[in-house]
Nucleic acid binder design. Structure first.
Lengths: 114, 114
DNA sequence: AGTATATACGTCTCAAGGGACATTTAGGTC
DNA sequence: GACCTAAATGTCCCTTGAGACGTATATACT
């Protein structure tokens, strides 16, 4: 479980990350919000912590967890290379639809051209 | 293997996607570029195809594979909610560093403030 | 037709990861 | 100190997925 990609492949872990987006939470709060057994929550938090997605501070018996940005930023960096491709692809799709416009004129508004 | 996240958790599949970013490729080309056994390539391509990451067209005995944008865009959409958090976090870090500036003045250029 | 090439597919083995449950550790309260 | 709560950890079971290998199918080339 080294890579950030494997870590976020697990749905419950993504749910935990999304929950921590609003604010920091204790294990018990996560457990109640997401309706997971406590050991399950702790197990996933362990993975997230080891991979640097979250950090915790101790508040008496509680552990309060909060997000750390780096690993998700790495994922985002990998995705970045594909964004160029998307815009190019959208353009190609639009040109294709433009070509298809001629045979069947519809009530659709005119598409913008370049 | 439903979710796009599980699909891109596999390093070889990410390599294939990155390779297809430059242009479309046949299975044999992928096999040689990435130094993977052909059955492995085909197996991963199968997963990618089923999940909508790629599509193929037949060229004689060859299958030529190319990228499709949608599943990666979904991943990107999930990541989007965290971007706000990052900028806020960077701001907080900058304020922190600003506070640390006073004791040790260095040759570093002045940091912008808000 | 016969051979080589390209790709898909099935099978087997192995290791890893997740869920459930029990147990332990640590802090707080009376 | 006895007891409660919060969280972590360990164990067991089961499923899944990846790699390796063999093989089947389809097309091209002579």
């Amino acid at each position: 479980m080294e890579s950030a990609f494997e870590v976020i492949a697990e749905p419950n872990r993504r749910a935990i990350l999304s929950l921590l987006l609003s604010s920091q939470h204790s294990v018990g709060e996560i457990e109640r919000q997401l309706r997971m057994p406590q050991p399950t929550v702790s197990k996933h938090l362990r993975v997230l912590r080891d991979a640097g997605f979250v950090e915790s501070t101790v508040d008496a018996q509680r552990r309060v967890y909060r997000l750390k940005p780096v690993p998700l930023q790495e994922v985002d960096a990998w995705l970045a290379q594909f964004r160029r491709f998307w815009s190019a692809h959208v353009d190609a799709l639009e040109r294709h639809l433009d070509r298809m416009d001629q045979p069947t004129p519809t009530k659709r508004k005119t598409r913008r051209r370049r």
